[in-house]
Amino acid sequence: MKETFAVITGASQGLGKSFAQELAQKKINLILISLPNEGLSDLCKNFQEQFGIRAVHYETDLSTQENVLTLANWINENYAVKILINNAGVGGTKKFDEASSAYIEKIIQINVMATTLLTHQLLANLKKQDKSYILNVSSLAAFSPIGYKTVYPASKAFIHSFSRGLYQELKATNVFVSVVNPGPMKTNEDTTKRIEGQGFLASMTALKPEKVAKYCIQQLEKRDTVIMVNRFSWLCLRILPIWIKLPMLTNKIKKELTITP
């Protein structure tokens, strides 16, 4: 039987790295993807030595469509994919009229284009396995617009809607689709600074990537279509009317402007 692999984008740090760790512990082979020079080679070696699995890596910038297509071709030509985790994403906090076009384009290209296109290109591969899984990483931000982020929540709302629609379309096939909507996580130095800039409560309630990853994989195995890590926050966002939550969240996020470069 041909070996199968889990593909994880944004795998060098934060939630992506925690996903890789969790799957490696379950003896699942890995294809790890991130930007160049982020230590993927050493990470793969560590997983192979510690867990006795196969772990390969691919370094590329997913904000370019050509790079996504090249990556997908490389995977399809060489590996059988059982799990696809679209984790790579980018955000930030800026006044919309002060954001550069490159800044806006990067959010859309990575969060929307890369996730959608890579899923499309790997779907035939996933369908060849007995059972396969797609997990897309959205955000609680998908459930409300937010000033000073504007494009990011919209991109995550797209991911949530895309995932739910694809789940329904593939429901009768061997490919199961799920989406996770985690809250703030201290995934890297920049994100940690932004969370801490929102105050003590935000810092204390920030999620730990390793716990989120463990819970997500558990729920994916249980075929949970929408994974909610923080149900209380999700419920608040669903219940609160837009005229309350929009200014409330915007004022909270505005504090990040003083510490965001």
Rank of each mutant, 00 (worst) to 15 (best):
T4H: 06
A6F: 01
I8D: 00
I8V: 10
G16W: 02
K17T: 05
K17C: 09
Q21A: 11
K26L: 14
K26N: 08
S34M: 09
N37T: 11
N37D: 12
L40Q: 09
S41Y: 12
D42H: 11
C44E: 02
K45W: 10
I53P: 00
H57S: 12
N67T: 11
L69D: 11
L71H: 03
A72D: 02
I75Q: 00
N76P: 01
Y79F: 15
I85P: 03
I85L: 05
N86M: 04
V90M: 09
G91L: 07
G92I: 06
A99I: 05
A102T: 15
I104N: 05
A114F: 06
T115V: 11
T116Y: 12
T119Q: 04
N125Y: 00
V137M: 10
A142V: 07
P145F: 08
Y148I: 02
Y152H: 09
A157R: 13
S161V: 05
Y167F: 12
T173H: 03
V177F: 02
V179Y: 02
G183C: 05
M185H: 07
M204D: 06
A206I: 04
K208L: 14
A213S: 12
Q218E: 10
Q218A: 09
Q218V: 07
Q218C: 13
T225D: 11
T225I: 14
V226F: 11
M228H: 15
F232D: 13
W234P: 00
R238D: 10
I242R: 13
W243Q: 14
I244Q: 12
K255H: 08
T258C: 06
T260C: 09
